[in-house]
Nucleic acid binder design. Structure first.
Lengths: 315, 315
DNA sequence: GTGAAAGCGCTAACAT
DNA sequence: ATGTTAGCGCTTTCAC
C-alpha cells in the first residue's frame, strides 16, 4: 500500500481511505491512486486490515454436510446474498459430528468473523461457552422451537412432521411408516419423526420406524422399505426423511409392483428439482432453504412455521 | 496472548512457541501455559498470526456451483483431507460466471492463502495475470488435456465423451443424442459432447444435440427428450450431461412407454448414489471426484484418464 | 529453552 | 480532504 501511496504521491492513509470509502477522497487523487493500483497490480492484505480494524468480512457457516441438496442450496443462497453485502463465507461441515463442530467454531472464531451461522440447536457445552464469550451475531438455522443462543431462522421439524401426518390422515391413511436417514446423524429427521408419530397417534393410526445405517442411500432405502412392508403389510403410507430416500422407495415400489399411492403413498422432504418429474410426481415438503438467506438483510423472521405447510401435494 | 503469558508467568514469545511447536517448550512451562489458556478461554487471533508470518492456513477452492453433487462431493473430500493437514477451505462459487471467478480469485488472494484450487482451464485474462503474480501453488481440477497454470488434477472430458460413444457403438447404437445442461454454463459438458460427437462420427453414426436453457432441470430434460425423439425418431441412445438430466430422461421414457434400453438407451454422468436404484439401473460415468483429494498429499497425478473408463454399465 | 525487540501491512484516531 | 502517529496481536530473529 505504501508503494501505491508513493506512486500516487499521496499518503498511505489516503490510499486506505480510498479503498474503503472512495467518495471521501478527491477525484483527482482518487484517479491517481487507482492508476497506481492498476500499475502495480496491488492487492490489499486482508489480514493486515482485519488485524488493524479487529473485524473481518468473514461470516462462518457451519452445516452438517454440503452434499445434502438442501444445505448446499441454503449455502448458495446465503452466499449470493451476503456477497452483495461484502461478506465472505467460511464454510465448515461437521459431518454430523459435534466435536467437529466445536473445532470448527473455534477455528472460525479465531478469524474474528462478522457473524456465525450454525445449523440447529445441538451444540457441545464447550461450543456454547465459546459462543457466549464472543459478541458477534449468531444465527441458528434449519430449526425452530427452542430458545436459541442469539437469533433463530428456521422452521419446526416437529411441526413439519405433524403437518405431513395430518395431510396423510386427511387423505384416509392410518397405517404409516417413517423411512429415515440415521437419527444420530440427522437430528432434524428425528424431530420430523417425532412430530409425525405424535400426530398419527392422535389420529389413532400406527407408525413403523426404519432407519438407514449409512448416509442417504437410495438403494438401502429400497431394501428397508421392502422388508418393512414384509413385516407390516398393513402399511399404507411412508414419510421419508428426504427426497433421495423417497426416490429409492418409489423405485422399490415399482420393482415390487406396488402402485403409488394406491398400495403405498410416498412423501419426501426437500422438494428437490427432480421430484416434479417422478412417476407419479412426488409429494414432498419444501423447506424454506432459500428464504433463510434473508437474514443477511436483517430480516430474522423466526415465524417461518407456515413454510412447512408447503407440502407439495402431487401423488 | 500477553494475558496468557502473564498468568503463566512466561514471556509472550514462549506462549507463541508453545502454540506452534509445543515440544520445544519445557514441560513445566507448557503445563502452566495450557492451564492459563484454559482458564482464560484464550483463542488465538489468526489474522495477527497471519500478518506476522505472512502466510495463512487458508486454501481457496473455486467451483462453479456447490449444488452439483460432484462438486460438493469433491469439496467435502478435499476438506476432509486438507483439514487433517491443518488447512481451512475458503470456498467460492462462480455460478459459472468468469467475472465472478476473477472477483473471487482477487478476494481469496488477498487472504494470503497457502494455495488455490480452481475448476477447469477457463479463466479471464486478468485472473491469469493475478495468479501469475502470486507464487502460491495453484491447482486446476476437473479437467485435463491442456497446459495448466501450475498443477492439474482431473480427467479429459473429451476422452470421457469418446469413451461413452465407443461404449455405445460397441453395443450397436449408431443414432444418438446428447442431452445437456447449458454449454455456456457447463463448459465441461460441452467438452464431453465434442468427444462424444467425434467418436460417433468416426463410427459413422449421428448425434443430435439438445441443450437445456435453465440449470440442471429434470423436468426440462424430459420435455427436451420428447421433442427430440419427435424430430429424430431414429435416435437409439442418449448421453446426458449429468445424472439428474438422465433421471429426467428415464422418467420421460417411461411416460412415453419407451423401454430402456431397447427403445432408447440412456447414459448419465456423475454416478450419483441413486443411479444404482433406478429402473433399469442407470448406466453412468463415475468421475474421479473423490480421488482428486489426493492433491493434499502431494500426489498430483494428472494421469487420471483411465478413470473416465469407469463407465458403470448397468442398463 | 527462554525473553526482548522489531516488525508484518494495514486502520483509526487526531490534527491540519 | 489529507497527512501524521500509534497501535492491532501476533511471529521472528537474535541474544542469552
Amino acid at each position: 500500500m505504501s508503494e501505491v501511496a508513493q506512486l500516487a504521491d499521496v499518503s498511505p492513509s489516503t490510499v486506505s481511505l480510498y479503498l474503503r470509502r472512495p467518495d471521501e477522497v478527491s477525484s483527482r487523487r482518487a484517479e491517481r491512486i487507482q492508476t497506481a493500483i492498476d500499475r502495480l497490480g496491488y492487492l490489499p492484505n486482508t489480514m493486515a486490515g482485519g488485524l488493524a480494524s479487529s473485524r473481518s468480512n468473514i461470516i462462518g457457516v457451519i452445516v452438517p454436510t454440503i452434499t445434502f441438496s438442501f444445505f448446499s442450496e441454503t449455502l448458495e443462497t446465503l452466499e449470493k446474498n451476503l456477497r452483495t453485502a461484502g461478506y465472505q463465507l467460511l464454510i465448515g461441515n461437521t459431518e454430523f459430528d459435534a466435536s467437529r463442530e466445536e473445532e470448527l467454531i473455534r477455528s472460525i472464531l479465531s478469524w474474528n468473523p462478522a457473524g456465525l451461522v450454525l445449523t440447529g440447536f445441538s451444540h457441545s457445552r464447550k461450543s456454547v461457552s465459546l459462543l457466549a464469550k464472543s459478541d458477534i451475531p449468531i444465527i441458528e438455522m434449519w430449526d425452530y422451537g427452542q430458545e436459541g443462543l442469539d437469533m433463530v431462522v428456521g422452521f419446526s421439524h416437529h411441526t413439519c412432521g405433524r403437518l405431513v401426518a395430518e395431510h396423510l390422515v386427511r387423505h384416509g391413511y392410518r397405517h404409516t411408516a417413517f423411512l429415515s436417514t440415521n437419527f444420530q446423524r440427522d437430528i432434524r429427521a428425528r424431530e420430523r419423526y417425532l412430530g409425525f408419530r405424535d400426530a398419527i397417534a392422535d389420529a389413532g393410526g400406527s407408525v413403523v420406524l426404519r432407519e438407514l445405517t449409512g448416509r442417504s442411500n437410495t438403494a438401502e432405502a429400497g431394501d428397508l422399505l421392502r422388508h418393512m412392508v414384509d413385516d407390516h403389510p398393513e402399511t399404507q403410507a411412508v414419510f421419508c426423511s428426504n427426497d433421495m430416500v423417497a426416490l429409492g422407495a418409489m423405485f422399490e415400489c415399482r420393482r415390487q409392483g406396488w402402485s403409488i399411492p394406491e398400495r403405498l403413498a410416498i412423501v419426501g422432504f426437500g422438494n428437490q428439482d427432480f421430484t416434479g418429474s417422478t412417476i407419479p410426481p412426488m409429494t414432498t415438503v419444501e423447506p424454506p432453504g432459500k428464504r433463510s438467506a434473508n437474514i443477511s438483510r436483517g430480516c430474522c423472521s423466526t415465524d417461518s412455521r407456515e413454510m412447512t405447510r408447503q407440502i407439495r401435494q402431487r401423488g
